[in-house]
Design a protein around this nucleic acid. Sequence first.
DNA 1: CGAACAATTGAACCGATTCAAGATGCGTGG
DNA 2: CCACGCATCTTGAATCGGTTCAATTGTTCG
Lengths: 237, 237
Amino acid sequence: MALIPTASSPKQLRCSQCSLVKLCLPVGLNDEDMMQLESIIETSKIYKQNESVYRAGDPFHHVYAVKSGMFQTVAIDANGDSQIVGFHLPGELFGLDAIYPGHYTSTPVAVSSSIACSIDFKELSTLATQMPSLQHQLLTLMSKEMHASHVNMGDHSADQKIAGFILSLSARYKQRGYSANQFQLLMSRKDIANHLGMAPETVSRLLKRLINEDVLDINQSDITIKNMKYLQDTVGH
Amino acid sequence: MALIPTASSPKQLRCSQCSLVKLCLPVGLNDEDMMQLESIIETSKIYKQNESVYRAGDPFHHVYAVKSGMFQTVAIDANGDSQIVGFHLPGELFGLDAIYPGHYTSTPVAVSSSIACSIDFKELSTLATQMPSLQHQLLTLMSKEMHASHVNMGDHSADQKIAGFILSLSARYKQRGYSANQFQLLMSRKDIANHLGMAPETVSRLLKRLINEDVLDINQSDITIKNMKYLQDTVGH
DNA sequence: CGAACAATTGAACCGATTCAAGATGCGTGG
DNA sequence: CCACGCATCTTGAATCGGTTCAATTGTTCG
């Protein structure tokens, strides 16, 4: 747990780059391999709130790694309604779902001011053929996402969705070295609701209930989990 | 559209094997590569109805390709409820979601008498490092599944879920060379309901409505789509 | 042919949405 | 620094879609 990307200062870009590789693609690599991998990571860019990284429909060339902040990927369906497909935390990759169609199908938008760097997918996959462990890591990443969406299929009630959502964020922050019990709910209630397929009012009501029952503590966008087990029990029911 | 796996006769196993490779992993390969790929496909097995291929929890070693019939993957959640994660048609692969956890998380069960063959994943990924097009195909397959589950996130009403489900089956059968308008709904209503997260009664009612409105025709397990556009309009709304 | 299971149909119920208002927070300019 | 205005969030009451429960019909198989 040495280097963790904490702040959004541009001065940290270079030094956090090394750890970013380990966070996104934590493969067992020797120094030379690691150098190669880092060499294909292109320069970082700071995205202002609501700024998009690319647009749905653009040709697929790069995948992106989040360095700080948060991105949400928004898809527009046939009738023009937008659907927030996912939220991407520091250390996570997005854009891999565009491999198949060959073009992006959703638009990633910075939830708050955020930093991401791009990786040329062609170079990445070429490198993967030379580094079996990298190939395996790519497959693992995608398998993980498949797995996550399978789990989400089961969630039924609104309570379970909310609990599952909070636990997912908690686990993912924890995995990247942040606190599992306290973090920022950077996205709006409306966006949470959209992502979970429910009304914003329901999100509001259920969060209030969780606060009243001493499961959560929420101040503005800061959320503290006071009773993790309660949430876990809710999901597994 | 030369060789298509049509029947379940064991005599066809050998000859359908070649086309199976093309169907599951339709990469641009020369003959030698194709031979190599075929060489790692292990022998097929006939699974009786309700027979499982492996069990959730088993260590992950193989992925499986469906040759005929249909498999459904069943996951058991924390409270013991089962959730049908997906249905697998001829020419489709299953088991890839187990790469990440390293063990299977769901149990594939033959919906009707079905045939599948196993592929050693270690050999497959080793081969992929030597054949960039195979690696790309594997990534494409997984990207496709991610993409499909993203699309499913948006579906809201029960009507849309049913329409989307039927259209998905139709498109997948069509892609494998079968009819897009007529196929068998081998799985039970209860299992469709479970998979879509709704009550079996609702499936019954909505299918009846679609039959009354001349959108579908259903005889036992045979389904005929009489008004594809109606279904498409339902999904995109 | 009859038993067991699957699918259908009807009526009451419940969770979540919708609609409509009110509260809270936040940036802007006076 | 406070007042204003806009946007987000919260809260309440009515409505609706889908579930649940219960009974009937249909289908498969020993």
